[in-house]
Design a protein around this nucleic acid. Structure first.
Lengths: 206, 206
DNA sequence: TCGCGATCTCAACGCCCGTTGAATCCGAGT
DNA sequence: ACTCGGATTCAACGGGCGTTGAGATCGCGA
């Protein structure tokens, strides 16, 4: 599906003129396939097909399906930059800011969303689970934990992760009907308050 | 792994004496495999191996891998009974009751947890996603929505589902360290309050 | 006692997978 | 003008998959 045929065409072997951009075409196709079908479900052959290229070329560039996965699932935004930007204005309203940002990029990325690819792969593939745990942990959660002033900061970050992953699965993957249809700003308010509570309010019961 | 060899042994063909219990052994093996590896990752051959039986016998009993999945993922508890029991004492403390119950059966079911199998399969396999959406929706969420007295009851139920699925993925599958290690009653308090808010408090921002 | 039918195994089918090795093509550097 | 090496394809490999059909075994009702 969606197999346009810009690169590698004509059935002729050998090098095509120009800078080709084939590598990027493969990465784009891989992002889309991994995101919507997960590591196991996406096949090298289908990715190559989408990119209009022989499967062997994929191996030539990336060596291994696993390595292609790592390359394709690289997060398109740098957490070292965005986390401080979200934390910048202070801890007030942090939950809403975080959620507005999250729902924004979910809609923006659409089909080729590495977060979805990581989730779809992690639930089945232990290596992908490790990748996701490390990315979430080191790149995001620990940074957030370091930026708030409260007890058990890392547990608080994990709580946030559990609600965010739940949003991804329930809204984007399962597509629970009222949740998928709900107004975005309404969700920002509801979930933002949850995140805010996880980050800053006392943890033991009221 | 875990392949004991009670049924179908001896390499001899034909019927064994007694009531055999082979069908149940296959279902048990299927539950464990589907739960820990998802629909695609679990193979008929591995399930048959765990049950100490030829793969063809699995097909003889269930006809299809898909049908075996449906049979194995049947929820071991009847929602038509437990949802009213949770709703019974009224809406006060419903969040905590729901969470105590949920974390309880998660620990109780251990390896062979149909909820995990459904999640692990649904993120990749559209049929399983439909199964899970329908089971969640008709058997649980709609019942809860009918039992609370508030606006947009189904959206509220979907919000609960998103947090619960997030707990399953972050705590049981990704095993985020502080979340997996946290005291159960602490989590009951924290998440219980979230669920309570989703079910009964005003939805638009304070 | 006999045979029906359920239980069970064996061997094979066709398919798709990730990966490999050799061959071809052609732009760029000398 | 000539090579060198990267880009690209083709054909094949070995292995795992779900599924099938034929046949063996044996408990149980008549």
């Amino acid at each position: 599906m969606a197999s346009s045929d810009s690169p590698g065409n004509g059935g002729r072997r050998g090098r095509r003129p120009g800078d080709s951009g084939t590598r990027e075409a493969i990465l784009d196709a891989a992002r889309a396939r991994f995101s919507s079908e997960g590591f196991r479900g996406a096949t090298v052959r289908a990715i190559a097909g989408d990119a209009g290229v022989d499967p062997a070329l994929v191996m030539h560039f990336f060596g291994t399906k696993q390595a292609l996965f790592v390359a394709a699932m690289e997060f398109p935004l740098d957490p070292a930059e965005i986390v401080p930007r979200l934390l910048g204005p202070g801890v007030d309203g942090l939950g809403e800011r975080l959620l507005r940002f999250l729902l924004g990029i979910i809609d923006e990325l659409g089909d080729a969303n590495p977060m979805l690819g990581l989730v779809r792969s992690a639930v089945t593939h232990p290596d992908a689970a490790r990748m996701m745990r490390e990315f979430l942990g080191e790149a995001i959660l620990d940074r957030i934990a370091a930026g708030i002033d409260a007890d058990r900061p890392r547990l608080r970050a994990d709580l946030c992760a559990s609600q965010i992953v739940g949003i991804l699965v329930a809204r984007q993957i399962l597509a629970l009907p009222e949740l998928a249809a709900a107004d975005r700003e309404l969700l920002v308010g509801i979930y933002g308050r949850t995140i805010q509570r996880y980050l800053t309010e006392p943890l033991d019961s009221s």
